[in-house]
Design a protein around this nucleic acid. Structure first.
Length: 800
DNA sequence: AGGAGTGCGCTTTTT
DNA sequence: GCGCACTCCT
């Protein structure tokens, strides 16, 4: 038997084989771009099941995106189906017709992989909560039940705004709900409760955030709702406090795999640790018999720290489980063979990323030839940049080198950059698909329809209730709603019950009660269908009986037609959901809808150029890649130019961009650019251009025009910063390099050194990160607090 | 109660 | 330049 499964290792290199055959204990797989990490993951799961005889029921495989989860499941199905092919049909997989292949895959999926948990963090742990949330004992006595709604960013922001303005009576201009939301989310992602936030608060703002966090939590509980962050935080709190629940999941999941480990945040990390070890204090754990934790990631591709992802978790993996390891050296495997890009591209990427201080040393080894040089295109302004890209596209297409538009991707740092490029593509009639933008489930009509479903499932959900109470119009205005809300709060009766009580309603608000009566009647009628009808039927009924559809038909505009189409698509999605899930119900569909983006369902224009942000390009590959807007203040972003750790993240983003390309890289830069519709401003070429060896670059060279845009720290405004010397620099390869030689080149810094900064004034060095040329210094500036600076870039000079 | 008009503020966004 | 959120007007 075991012999017959060697096929799992046939197509793997040595390091991949080590990763795949790993069985007991922790293993970190450092997987460079294009090194076949999905292959390692899927083959390992197959190996666990086929050779180690692990029950799929005991395996937990976690990803960050639905797309990655789906891809993993599909590839796993195929691997296992291949193994079954000989037995079943007496012939190899590749010779089977598509129908037989699909049959076999369906069988694998239905039988073998039925109990395998593979999915995103959020979907898997919301599933866990559906089982166990009622066992959670909150310190403040708050509770949830398993019909909970999942609030998206908009829903929770609505709630927070209400808390800030109504409950706390604060000025939303001074305390911007979006920022408060961000701060709360950040705390939740660090696994911090509002109490901890309160204790650590240093100023008024901190205290207000902690207070808002507390009230927000109460409000969520009142609505029987959770936000995205709670789907991870609550399981952590629950697993910590409830030994029984913890040991149940610990005993179930004996083999845990995490993809894109560099993107985990503290809460996700805690979660993984709790389930892996089954202990609240992981240092006590040592029994790795028939148990493993297998994480795959690349610190150099960590680009989501602004969402609280912390790649130091990956770097620290080795130490996390150190005490428990028999053999420390076996806890890390590096996949460095790259099967994607030419060696010129990889050399450029390797050199660039060397400039980062915080990383795990690794290189990308090419398995291909040199290929072409990286092409640098320098343009007058953003319009000629777009034109230059378009003309390059046309040339390559006409030369018949790459006769397909789908082989091109145009990447940019900010969405705003796409418009000019689109205009140019339209002008030259080049088909393109723009990636990202408004999510399907973020559309107004979709959110409305979903809100109806949510209220039917969970009548406590006031955010949804208030969204639809007057949609379509029932003549229920702001004042009546305010009154009803007041009654609800005063008497501590859920809003739904207040409006569902006809008699007291007439007594309190009189005439407007007619519209509300209409609404509650509708909802009561619809709720009869909740148990016996699936979500598709229910949606159909909602849209018909509420008059929503009618209103759209009556208005008859293009926009309303589009909305109707979208609603039809929502019903189709519900139907599909029912078909794909045996025990499909409306609750499940709602969870699915909340946690699904439509990037996968989006209709792509066939054979078109792809436009997307650099962030969106992670995990993809293209034959030819354009990286645009390589200017200081744009890429790297103006928020990062004088912050070393943010700059390192921008550099990783550029690294991600470079490593998307198989054959060719085009980098473009404009000497002047119009930002936010203002004046055209001269620019400085991106520092990253100077970090790629000259001999790898072919191109018209960037001219520096001597200014870059950055945020003025005092005014909070964007200002143009002149660099006197840079005007004199002309067309020379050294131009870019010379620009960054900065005022403090060659200066040696030590802890305790005193210096003066152009903006922050006098300060003292309290810590030094990195060494040699690549240091950053932590400086304490009297009342301005501490900053981390790059001594090569910061406007500083030493004083003694 | 709801539509038109004005002013402000601006990165990236797996879920 | 553009979206949005809030205000004022009807």
């Amino acid at each position: 038997m075991s012999q017959s499964n060697n096929y799992l290792f046939e197509s793997l290199n040595k390091e991949q084989q080590i990763a795949v055959s790993h069985f007991n204990g922790p293993l970190l797989v450092v997987a460079g771009a294009g090194s076949g990490k999905t292959k390692a993951l899927t083959h390992r799961i197959a190996n666990l099941i086929e050779n180690n005889k692990v029950n799929p029921y005991n395996i937990l495989a976690v990803t960050f995106t639905n797309k990655a989860a789906r891809e993993m499941r599909e590839r796993l199905e195929i691997i296992l189906a291949k193994a079954l092919s000989d037995d079943r049909f007496g012939q190899p997989w590749s010779t089977l017709c598509e129908f037989d292949q699909n049959q076999l895959r369906a069988e694998i999926s239905r039988e073998k992989l039925k109990n395998l948990w593979i999915g995103t963090f959020h979907s898997l742990f919301s599933r866990l909560l559906r089982f166990d949330i009622e066992k959670y004992q909150d310190l403040e006595g708050l509770s949830w039940n398993n019909k909970f709604s999942i609030y998206d960013e908009t829903d929770s922001q609505t709630l927070i705004k209400e808390i800030i303005t109504q409950e706390m009576n604060l000025d939303p201009k001074q305390y911007v709900p979006k920022k408060i939301k961000w701060a709360i989310s950040n705390a939740k992602n660090q696994c911090l409760t509002f109490k901890q936030l309160e204790e650590n608060s240093e100023n008024n703002m901190d205290r207000i955030i902690a207070d808002a966090y507390k009230r927000y939590k109460t409000a969520l509980s009142k609505n029987n709702a959770l936000d995205f962050d709670d789907l991870l935080l609550l399981p952590v709190l629950l697993l910590k406090q409830n030994e029984e629940v913890r040991s149940y999941w610990h005993n179930r999941f004996k083999h845990i795999l995490v993809d894109e480990y560099q993107d985990t945040n503290r809460t996700q990390y805690e979660l993984i640790k709790l389930i892996t070890t089954g202990e609240t204090d992981s240092n006590e754990f040592s029994n790795w018999q028939n148990r493993s934790i297998f994480v795959v990631g690349d610190a150099d591709q960590s680009i989501y720290s602004f969402r609280a992802a912390d790649f130091r978790i990956l770097i620290g993996f080795k130490d996390d489980f150190k005490n428990n390891l028999k053999d420390n050296n076996n806890s890390i495997v590096k996949l460095e063979d790259n099967y994607r890009s030419t060696s010129n591209i990889l050399n450029a990427a390797n050199c660039l990323i060397q400039n980062n201080t915080e990383r795990i040393e690794k290189v990308l080894r090419s398995t291909k030839n040199n290929g072409e040089l990286l092409k640098l295109i320098s343009c007058d302004d953003e319009i000629s940049e777009a034109e230059a890209i378009t003309s390059k596209l046309k040339t390559l297409n006409n030369l018949n080198i790459d006769p397909k538009w789908k082989n091109f991707a145009i990447l940019y740092r900010t969405r705003a950059q796409s418009r000019v490029i689109e205009e140019s593509l339209v002008r030259w009639r080049i088909p393109y698909t723009i990636f990202g933008g408004l999510r399907f489930y973020d559309r107004r009509e979709i959110k409305d329809a979903i809100a109806y479903l949510r209220v039917l499932v969970n009548t406590a959900d006031n955010v949804s209730l208030l969204r639809i109470i007057n949609v379509p119009r029932r003549g229920i205005g702001k004042t009546s709603i305010q009154k009803l809300n007041e009654i609800s709060n005063r008497l501590n009766i859920p809003l739904w019950e207040v409006i569902n009580d006809k008699e007291s309603l007439v007594a309190t608000i009189g005439r407007t009660s007619k519209g509300i009566d209409q609404f509650t009647k509708l909802m009561n009628e619809l709720s009869c269908f909740l148990v016996n009808s699936g979500p598709a039927k229910l949606l159909q009924l909602i849209l018909e009986k509420s008059g929503y559809l009618n209103e759209l038909i009556m208005s008859g505009t293009d926009e309303s037609d589009e909305r109707r189409n979208n609603l039809q698509e929502l019903i189709n999605a519900a139907t599909q959901y029912e078909e794909e899930n045996e025990d499909a119900n409306t609750e499940g569909f709602l969870a699915n809808a909340a946690l699904t983006t439509d990037n996968d369902t989006k209709k792509n224009i066939p054979n078109s150029v792809t436009l997307m942000t650099l962030h969106n390009s992670k995990g993809l590959e293209f034959q030819n890649v354009f990286i645009t807007g390589l200017e200081q203040g744009l890429f790297p972003s103006y928020r990062s130019v004088d912050n070393p750790s943010l700059l390192e993240e921008e550099r990783r983003l550029f690294y991600v961009g470079l490593t998307r390309a198989k054959e060719r890289i085009f980098m473009s830069q404009a000497r002047e650019r119009r930002l936010w519709g203002g004046m055209r401003e001269p620019t400085i070429p991106s520092i990253f251009l100077s970090e790629i060896p000259e001999e790898l670059i072919d191109g018209e060279l960037p001219q520096s025009s001597g200014a870059y845009i950055r945020r003025d720290l005092h005014l909070g405004r964007l200002t143009r910063v002149d660099r006197g010397e840079s005007n004199t620099i002309n067309n020379s390869k050294n131009a870019v390099r010379r620009l960054y030689s900065g005022p403090s080149k060659g200066a040696k810094w030590a802890i305790g050194d005193k210096l003066i900064h152009a903006k922050f004034g006098k300060g003292e060095i309290i810590h030094i990160f990195g060494r040699d040329e690549k240091i950053s210094i932590a400086v304490k500036f009297g009342d301005k607090g501490s900053k981390i600076l790059d001594p090569r870039l910061a406007p500083i000079r030493s004083i003694n």
